[in-house]
Design a protein around this nucleic acid. Sequence first.
DNA 1: CTTCAAGTACGACTTGCATCGTACCTGAAG
DNA 2: CTTCAGGTACGATGCAAGTCGTACTTGAAG
Lengths: 111, 111
Amino acid sequence: MAGRNLVGPAADALDLGAVFRALADEHRRSVMMELAADRSDSERGCNSFDLPISKQTQTHHFRVLREAGLIDEIDYGNRKGIRLRRADIEKRFPGLLTLLGAESPGGTAPR
Amino acid sequence: MAGRNLVGPAADALDLGAVFRALADEHRRSVMMELAADRSDSERGCNSFDLPISKQTQTHHFRVLREAGLIDEIDYGNRKGIRLRRADIEKRFPGLLTLLGAESPGGTAPR
DNA sequence: CTTCAAGTACGACTTGCATCGTACCTGAAG
DNA sequence: CTTCAGGTACGATGCAAGTCGTACTTGAAG
C-alpha cells in the first residue's frame, strides 16, 4: 500500500497557540530540532529519534505535532513515517525553525 | 521611591522551553503581542492589558513571563510596571517577537 | 491617623497533560 | 496459516498549571 497521509491543519490554518503548546514539551522539541536540522527533509521512521519514553507516549507526541501542523505522519499500517512541514511552517511562521537551533548556550538559569 | 526591578534570568540564560511554555498560554501571549507591537517599549501599568481574569491570576501570569525572561517587572509597592525585554529577546531568540505578530492568518507578516 | 486601590501570599479547586498498562490492529516474514 | 514487531486505542494515574477566595502589605490621598 502507498501509505495514506494522516491529516493535519492546512498551512493557512496553523495556530500559534497550538504550535507553542506543541513546542513547550522537551521531547517534542527535540524531535523538531532534529527535523529542522536535516535540510533534506527526508521522511524518517518515527523510532529513529531515540526518545526515552514508551511507544504509546511517542504516539501521543507525534499526534500533537501533527495536529499542530508541524509534521506529516504517513501511515503504513505496521510502521509510520514522519516528515517536517518545512514549507508550510516557513510560510506561516517564518523564522520559527531557525529559532529551534538557538537552544541552550550552556547557561542553566539560576532561580 | 525608585522602584526595584524584580529579577529574571540573564539574557544568555533564557531557556527556549520556558519561553515556549510561557507563550503557550493565550493570556500571556496577548500581553506579549501588545508589548511587541509597541516599538517604543515604554513601561506599562500591569492593569493596562484588560485581561478577563482576576488580579491574583494576573500576578501569576506576569510572574511566569518574568521568570521566562520575557519582561521586567518594576515594583512600586502598590503598583507595578511592565517592560518588554526586547533587546535580550532579540539577541537570544531573533525573530521571536516578529512571530507574535503573525497570529492572524491572512498576512500580518511583513515581507 | 484612616481610607482606599493595587498587588501579593497562601491555599484550594479544577483542568490539562505526560506517562504508562493492557489489549488490539496491521503488515511482513516464516 | 502463525509469529512477531511496530503502532494504535482506551483507560488510569500522577503531576503541573490556571483559576479564584481570603487575608495581608504597600504607598498615596484625605
